[in-house]
Structure formats: structure tokens, C-alpha cells
Simulated assay, not measured.
Amino acid sequence: MSNEITVIGGGLAGLVAAIACAEGGASVTLHEAHRTLGGRGRATPAPYVAHEGAHVFYADGPHWSWLTERGLAGPLGTYNTRMMTHTFFRADGRLRRVPPAGFLRMAGRTPLLRAPVDRDFRSWASARFGERTAERAASAISVVTYDADTGRLSAAFVWELIGRVFAPKRPAVRWPIGGWQAVLDRLAARAAGLGVRVELGSRVTAPPDTPTIVATELASARALLGDASLTWESGHYAMLDLAVRDDRRDAFIVFDLDEGGFHESYSMQDPSTVPAGETLFQIGMPVREGEGGAGARRRLDALADAAVPGRGDRTTWSRTATARGRTGALDLPGRTWRDRPAIDRGDGVFLAGDMVAAPGMRGEISINSALRAASGALRAAIPSHRAGS
């Protein structure tokens, strides 16, 4: 049997899968339909380096170990005094340095209390912490779900995310210098060094005869494999990237407990993402059911005005975008990550990406699923291969 493996999709999941397969001794060909690698991890070119949505790593899982063991995470931005003193929570229409007391008490319980899978977060959290605190918590974690009604999701799913982000502990968030584009560039270089053949502008219309990893958006995988079951819940998010001339009043981070929005600076932790004397932000707002992009944009603008005072006279660059159905997996009541589309599809075909059956959140799901898909593909391509060998 040949040791050839095909990877379809050159985003984060596809690159990780290609590297893992090549490290396992396979001959790997990666097909990417676009003219550049990166998928949703791509960034805009310098001098304004912005992403499609908030892009950070959390250094508390196997995905991070895999990256750091290979030197792929690269140099990291760190907290500084300005960042710590310019982190805010928006509640009742105003910015405050400390979240409401009820929210703090709830976040402190995350290491101690388990939430049920089969109940929605809103009803479960309201019964324990009060309706207002539950709604604020759901809004605060919308930065991860990209969903305007996070309270409808599984209590266990939302509670785990709240614990990851807000539990009282040493912060695990990491910002790669140069953004995720720099990480993607290192992944691409690693793949090339291992002999992975990369075919750009190559749109595959049917699975090849070799063991294959489909590392595309779920909608694309559904079309490629002709499998209508490849669906899952996802979010709907409006984004504004904004560069302004520096002002010490600008917020570093704003968690919007009122509307579910999120504001973060790219450049306070990584000055390489913007020209000298300027600051680069991304502001996001989940789109409500039936609202449309225009309504979400009005709410987004209100958050931007609060976080970046006088931005209209200071703006040097901006862009807008909307993401729907490609913002990571969301688990409804009664479902967990194990219920998402399975990685092993049978007949030597495997899925990888941020909406399949692997743990983590967004990019972590992509990495973890890619490693599992690679393990399966290696066993299919090289009969003597064993997981972890």
C-alpha cells in the first residue's frame, strides 16, 4: 500500500494535519483552492495586520503543547501596565474596571460547580445566580461563541467557556507577535521542510483514492463528500477593524455585558501590527436573529464610540466584515463536542476543522481535530503506524 495522504484545505487545520502526517512518515500533498494558505487565520498585509475575528491562543491545552514543542507559536506579546489598567466591562451602558459583583461571584464558582449538558445556560444559570447575572455572563462570553443568544446553548458548553476565560487564575491567553499570520507562516515553512507538496489554486471536486483529510469549512466538506449530515450550529458576527492615532484614553479590552460585543487592541501587546504612533483595534458584535447586519453595525458603532473616544477624527484605516456559519461549533442543550460530525468518515476519509468532534474552542478544535485526523490517516496509509509513534 502507498504511504500517500491527501489534505484538502490549507488553513490552520489543514497545515497542522499535513505536518503531523509528514512527521509520521507519509508522503503528503495539500490542496488549497485559494492562491494563499491560511484559511480564516489569514491576516491583512502590513502595515495594518488584522484578523477575521479575535485570534489568540490559550496556553492550557494539548494544542498549545503541540505548537510550542515545535517552536511554532513563536515570540509572544505580554501584558503591560497600560493593558492591565485599560481593561473594562460594559454594564448598564457605561465602562467599568470591575464587573458587577454577581458576575464576579459566578465566575468564582466555575472551578467548583458542574453545569448540565441537557439544559440551556439561561435557565440553569438564572436559577442559581439570578436572571440578570445569567444574561450578563452569556453576553460576556459571546466573544467566544460569536452568538447573540448564547443563553440558549448547552449550560455545560457555556459554563466551560466562562471558566476558561473568566475564572480567577493566572491568565492563559497568549498573543503571537505578528498575529496568527506569523504562526501560519511558520506552519507552512515547517510543512515545506518536511516535504509536503502544496498545490495552490487547486480545487478538489471529489475525494482522491488516497487516505484523505478534508480540512475545509463544514459547508465545503458537505458538498465535496455529498453528505447532508455535515452540519452544525454556528454564530453570526459583525466586525470592525479600526486604526487610530494614539490616545491614552483608548481601552485595551472591553467585555460588553450589555450587548455581547467585544473590543480588543491588536497593537498594545504587539506594536508590529500597526504603524508607529497608531493603535489597531477590532470591535465585534453578534448579529441578532432577524436583525440584519445594519442593526448589528449600529450597536457595534456604539461600543466603538465608548471604547475609542473621538475615533472619527483619529481614524487612519478601517474595514468591516461579517461572518456567518463559519465561526466555530456551538453546542445546543443535550449535545456535546462528541455529537458533532465525526472525524473518521470511513473509507479512509477524515474531517478536521473548528466544527467537528474534538474538544476546545474555535482554533483549538481545528488543531485537536487535525491531529486526530492525521493519526487516522496515517493508520490507513501506513498499516504499521501506531498512534504516538
Score class of each variant (00 low, 15 high):
Arg311Pro: 01
Ala294Ser: 10
His236Lys: 13
Arg132Phe: 09
Arg40Ala: 15
Leu104Ile: 15
Glu364Met: 09
Ser220His: 13
Leu200Ser: 09
Gly277Lys: 08
Ala357Lys: 04
Glu131Ala: 14
Phe252Val: 02
Ala219Tyr: 01
Ala20Trp: 05
Asp120His: 13
Leu104Asn: 12
Tyr48Arg: 04
Glu160Leu: 07
Ile365Arg: 13
Gln282His: 12
Arg245Ala: 05
Trp64Met: 07
Glu217Met: 00
Asp60Ser: 12
Arg35Gln: 06
Thr145Asp: 12
Pro47Ala: 07
Gly334Trp: 04
Ser142Met: 02
Leu303Trp: 03
Gly348Ser: 09
Leu257Gln: 07
Trp159Ser: 04
Gly14Arg: 05
Arg94Ile: 13
Arg298Val: 15
Asp227His: 01
Arg245Ile: 01
Asp339Phe: 06
Ser126Cys: 01
Gly53Ala: 03
Leu242Phe: 00
Gly353Leu: 02
Ala91Gly: 06
Asp305Ser: 11
Gly10His: 13
Leu153Ile: 01
Arg324Val: 10
Arg248Ile: 15
Gly328Cys: 06
Ala155Arg: 07
Arg96Asn: 04
Thr216Gln: 09
Asp258Pro: 04
Glu259Gly: 14
Ala380Ile: 10
Asp92Val: 01
Asp331Lys: 05
Pro75Thr: 10
His55Ala: 15
Arg288Gln: 11
Asp149Ala: 14
Gly348Ile: 09
Ile283Val: 15
Gly11Phe: 11
Arg190Gln: 11
Cys21Gln: 03
His63Val: 10
Arg340Asn: 08
Ala321Gln: 02
Val214Trp: 02
Arg164Ala: 10
Phe103Ala: 09
Arg105Gln: 12
Thr273Ser: 08
Phe350Gln: 04
Ser142Lys: 00
Ala358Lys: 11
Arg326Asp: 12
Pro168Asn: 07
His236Ile: 07
Leu194Glu: 10
Val28Ala: 08
His63Arg: 08
Ala73Glu: 05
Thr320Pro: 00
Thr110Leu: 07
Arg372Ser: 04
Glu69Thr: 05
Asp270Trp: 11
Leu371Arg: 03
Glu160Tyr: 08
Asp339Pro: 02
Pro275Ser: 04
Val117Phe: 01
Trp66Cys: 01
Gln282Ile: 06
Ser267Leu: 12
Gly293Tyr: 09
Thr29Pro: 05
Asp118Ala: 15
Thr145Trp: 06
Pro309Val: 11
Thr205Leu: 08
Gly295Thr: 13
Ser65Cys: 05
Thr327Ile: 05
Thr85Gln: 15
Arg362Pro: 01
Leu330Thr: 14
Arg128Pro: 00
Ala381Pro: 03
Leu30Trp: 01
Thr210Glu: 14
Ala296Lys: 00
Leu12Cys: 09
Val143Ile: 09
Trp175Cys: 07
Thr336Val: 03
Ala228Cys: 00
Lys169Leu: 06
Ile253Ser: 08
Tyr58Cys: 05
Pro116Gly: 09
Thr78Cys: 11
Glu135Thr: 06
Thr320Ala: 12
Arg96His: 10
Arg386Thr: 07
Ala276Asn: 10
Arg345Cys: 11
Phe281Tyr: 13
Trp232Phe: 13
